[in-house]
Design a protein around this nucleic acid. Structure first.
Lengths: 340, 340
DNA sequence: TTGAAAGCGGTACCAG
DNA sequence: CTGGTACCGCTTTCAA
């Protein structure tokens, strides 16, 4: 592995000059510059980023901490982050936590040891204090896709409340009044927001959500199936169901089919997330699409911007991405509408 | 950011002693050790991995170069790599190339500049010379999921030939004789191997594959659909189709359904890959499952092993993972068999 | 324009 | 057991 020193020796100049020539920085006589470049080429010189970083205090490394890259949602986010990072000359350190706080903390430590310039964090440690302390004193961080009340840290979010509202309004526009929901765990911010969105949309349409139309889910397909069965057995079953995610919506589809009813003729279904499967099932699922790639992209942009503007930190950035309703067959009789 | 020097000063010892204490290496009086540890804690000392690496010549970084993390196949591979890396104390640098040779080369350069200890490579630059030169003189590399004839580099592969054979043999066992295939592009090793597997299995069963039962595909669903239509219009349509991947198999499913025929009663279908969708479509798809997570895991294990045994490089490792036939409804009338 | 030299944060060898 | 010090590869004053 040849070094700047080796080049200096062979060309007969100092390392200082070689450094300047190689980085095209400061004064070096044109002719000498070319000789240095040629020698670097000849020796297959590869600059040592570690040594550079040690003096610059900058590694151009971003650490991405996510629950699980094999989840398509995070994979797309990651792709958005990486593409953006790459465009700005940053490299990405990937960390999968499975939502374990222990691993999250370990990876934060790794990021700090490796002198990463910053962290993009999608985690479960959502203590306001921990995150603010990190951002202010340890390492720049942008929180993505996770809402924490009053959190004073750069963040990029999806507007789940808005998305849920859109979904329900869509059903209302189709004439539905008896709209049930299979909500997510109310211990998660996502579950909570989507439920509040449902409630608000109902109220604004002067529809009182009946208690037995609000079912407790856990984001799993089997639960969507089971809860829908329950809904169908009610004396007054709903004519539409808003499920807090696509998997539960797909479970609902099976339950309805099994009961000999038809979607959307007898019951309309709307999901959330727009996972790949949503456009594959029959009937195709109407759902709320999140900007996943863009989430990653914006998180990276925000972080990199922050790295160049650390001084303005008093006012952290908050970016809220708007979801998009994708109308397909599960809510619309007849024609297939799919903007995808 | 406190340093070893800061600790040394405050405790009143030399940096050498602090270093030894912190790494629990060499002799340091117990009591002193504890004082040093306490001070490190107090100062929120974080070791600088860059400085360490600069002297050790080891970064404990693995660079993963893949086409696209948002493709579920690679996402699982990546997860396997990361988990293993993590267990051994390595960090993962993630690089998405989209199969672009230019990006592949750029990322190899990045890996070298950042002094990554090694590379796990799933790429399209498959020149034997390039890879061997890299592995021998520049940076340890293990090639994953890509076959190159006679390549003298550590590698981990999926046995596509074997998988395709299994698929066809399975159809033969069910009594099929008229077995068509929609193969992948014969310019890709994967497409080639799976086709050869088909051919071999046919020949070993003394079935001559008729030329019009061999269709040219490109791994896309729409192509599977289209080519199946063609197959159905033959004077002697096949009674079974082996598609070189699941997407094409799913396209085939639609075409058959549309033609008013039933799977598997009229025509049996077998795919390849076992993508998540395979178990969701109706009828559920019989397919050949690849060990994706394990592929990543083994690639990482191999690389890390190699880093500790560079001297034995004359004989590179080759690991071939065995695919597994997952029998579902699309090939089996009646009972639902799904080992998943 | 160029070079000498001081560091960046640690490690490790050699003395003591 | 502990300290002095050279060095890892590169950047950046400061002088010349």
């Amino acid at each position: 592995m040849s070094t700047i020193y080796e080049i200096a020796k062979q060309v007969g100049v100092s390392t200082a000059t070689v450094s300047r020539a190689l980085n095209n920085k400061g004064y070096v006589k044109e002719e000498l510059k070319h000789r240095i470049w040629a020698k670097a080429e000849e020796l297959d010189y590869v600059p040592n980023a570690l040594a550079k970083s040690l003096v610059n205090k900058l590694t151009q490394i971003i650490t991405l901490i996510i629950p699980d890259i094999s989840n398509p949602f995070f994979a797309l986010v990651a792709r958005g982050v990486e593409d953006t990072a790459y465009n700005y000359g940053y490299s990405l350190l990937m960390c999968n936590t499975d939502g374990s706080k222990v691993k999250e903390k370990k990876y934060v430590a790794v990021a700090r040891e490796r002198q990463a310039d910053g962290i993009i964090f999608i985690g479960s440690i959502m203590s306001k204090n921990y995150l603010e302390e990190l951002a202010q004193n340890k390492i720049p961080i942008v929180v993505a896709d996770r809402y924490v009340d009053g959190l004073n840290v750069d963040k990029v979010l999806n507007d789940n409340l808005k998305g849920a509202k859109e979904a329900v309004r869509h059903l209302v526009r189709l004439g539905h009044q008896a709209i049930a929901t299979i909500r997510g765990p109310q211990t998660t911010q996502t579950g909570l927001d989507r439920y509040i969105g449902y409630e608000k949309a109902m109220k604004e349409s002067l529809l009182e959500p009946r208690q037995d139309w609000v079912r407790e889910g856990d984001f799993k397909e089997s639960t969507g199936y089971y809860e829908t069965k329950q809904l169908l057995e009610l004396r007054e079953p709903p004519t539409a169901i808003f499920a807090a995610n696509d998997l539960m919506a797909i479970g609902a589809l099976s339950a309805i089919e099994e009961a000999g009813l038809r979607v959307p003729h007898d019951i309309a279904i709307v999901g959330y997330d727009d996972i790949p499967l949503a456009s594959k099932v029959r009937p195709r699922l109407t759902t709320v699409a999140q900007l996943k790639y863009e989430l990653g992209q914006q998180a990276a942009e925000t972080l990199i911007w922050r790295l160049n503007n650390p001084e303005q930190y008093k006012r952290p950035e908050t970016l809220v991405l708007q979801p998009r309703l994708v109308i397909r067959e599960s809510s619309l009789v007849g024609s297939v509408i799919d903007e995808k």
